[in-house]
Design a protein around this nucleic acid. Sequence first.
DNA 1: ATGCCTAAGCCCCTTAGA
Length: 260
Amino acid sequence: MKIVTYNVNGIKARLPRLLEYLDEQQPDVVCLQELKASDETFPIADIRAAGYGAVWHGQKSWNGVAVLAKGADPVERQRGLAGETEDDHSRYLEAEVATDFGGVVIASLYLPNGNPLPGPKFDYKLRWIDRLAARARALLAEERAVVLAGDYNVIPNDDDTYSVRAMASDALMQPESRAGFRALVAQGWTDALRTRHPKGGVWTFWDYQAGAWPRDAGFRIDHLLLSPIAADRLADAGVDKDYRGREKASDHAPTWAMLR
DNA sequence: ATGCCTAAGCCCCTTAGA
């Protein structure tokens, strides 16, 4: 089964691209981020017409995450992360999707960008990683197939960016951001892309600015972390890079893992 | 050090993204 994470950067502006992607790739599960739409304006009718069920956690203008499943309705398990009652960002949605191997737990997450730094946005990012890690630990304890998929806004290694120098002062690459991500992975998760492409050099994001796409000046910030039971089924992982080059594209490309 | 480019809101410029 093909499980995808795709930061659409506006579901309304990206709907033609998304429907085209569903039609052409027929992914089994798609985690969306940056809907930039309220719950009421999520285009569920179009998604259903394409053959997908969905759960979503919207927010006007910013953030927003969803889980789509082909020919099935994902069953919501949790929205939002514990630990900060005043946090009203829609950045985490967890659901269960039925499979022929007993079902898979899917989380669609949109980790805070954290720029500028230092400052409250960076502090929020670091706290959010820790809150995610707490949830992740509980999920591992269930000893099931789990996939934590989303835009982590973390460049894990130096070979995950076209230029260490250009990104050195960015929140995506700070030692604290990396340490948080590394601590999460070290709980026992498998970074699907990294496992299949251990030498790096695989990008999931290309900035709209300064000709980043034609220069192939990208980096890897969209990740799929697999629990041990899910990792046992990992057959391949990659990026559907082609969609970044199409008309009215998101600045992220769909990033996927194939489970047997 | 800054703009580059895009989406959305609300009202044509500002905020935010990465």
